[in-house]
Design a protein around this nucleic acid. Structure first.
Lengths: 180, 180
DNA sequence: AGGTACATGTAATTGGTTACATGATTCC
DNA sequence: GGAATCATGTAACCAATTACATGTACCT
């Protein structure tokens, strides 16, 4: 059971989903490809944390829909109270920023402009998700810590903060590149 | 040549350093253990990007001091202008926040309090590094994009922003946990 | 007929962590 | 003598990405 397993259990604790769906839902908060998720689900099923049933579809290919077991749910609840490991951030941009003095001003501007654009795109993406949440759920739902919507709400808020933060940082650097 | 290699070249472009020193300097911006760095340096030397000489020390054990070659410097400059990969953030806390509805209020408060403390510690750490930079370097140095100090300055600013951001987010969640 | 999204899987490789291993030097 | 920091390395393992592989259903 690695961290990704708990992320998948956290999704399945809300609703049963196929491996393909799990891959899509977890993407924004934990990067994982289908080639990592499918074998992991099989392993988790072997160990009794999830089960699956095949759901036949007529408009799309058939799928395996996974559900969390009570053993999986217990495991998930225990994990939340265990010590939390520190976040790991690996951003090539940080290393490039460190070596910025080795490049010409035009390249530096290009580098930070495209990164500002990346943050703008992410911001729009998360704003859209947040709007969707607020349309679907009432305030009493997503503002209540006991509600599943609360977790999604605070997660999206963190993602929004982070994107704004990154965007502001890029603009700040760009302003110095233009004056300096 | 992976991303870590370029990070190491970026450090060596400023000053020659031992593997042990490189490990310490790169830590805040790219997590890597000595067991990954030592073999990588050997490989980079084989490929002609760095060289090393043994420096005898009397107060400490002897060390291998690595220097960047012109081939390594060329490689580094080209890399800066290549397309930048997206950042990868893996934070167990995000997955726990998502499943927060499964736990009791006391555990939730504990979880966010200790994470707030982590951000406070990081903030203090980076503030200290920033102060050191400002004491060592003149404003004309660290505010000039052509200076090596500029890269360090904007990196520390990003780390500070990020820590503050995370701390505020934790306090915001905690305020909702106390009211909700 | 070709492209895209849906859907699931395995194999090979790289990247990264943990554990094992050794030794110098300093401070208490 | 024992702990802490400095210093370098290898081995085993786990996590993650890339590539290989197959097939359905829908739309143009």
């Amino acid at each position: 059971m690695n961290t990704l397993s708990y992320g998948l259990l956290g999704l399945l604790a809300r609703a049963s989903r196929s491996g393909y769906e799990l891959m899509q839902y977890i993407q924004p908060f934990w990067q994982a490809k289908h080639s990592q998720i499918y074998p992991l689900l099989a392993k988790m099923e072997q160990e009794g944390y999830v089960t699956h049933e095949v759901v036949l579809q007529s408009d799309k290919p058939d799928k395996k829909v996974y559900s969390i077991t009570s053993k999986g749910s217990d495991k998930l609840k225990i994990w939340i109270n265990e010590p939390t490991t520190e976040p790991v951030l690996r951003d090539e941009m940080m290393l490039k920023a460190y070596s910025l003095w080795l490049t010409d001003p035009e390249s530096a501007v290009r580098l930070f402009s495209s990164r500002a654009q990346m943050y703008a795109d992410k911001l729009a993406y998360y704003e859209n998700l947040m709007q969707g949440l607020k349309e679907r759920e009432s305030e009493t739902s997503y503002l209540s810590p006991a509600s599943p919507a609360f977790g999604r709400y605070i997660l999206l808020q963190k993602a929004l903060d982070n994107s704004k933060n990154g965007q502001n940082w890029c603009e700040w650097v760009l302003s110095m590149l233009k004056n300096g």
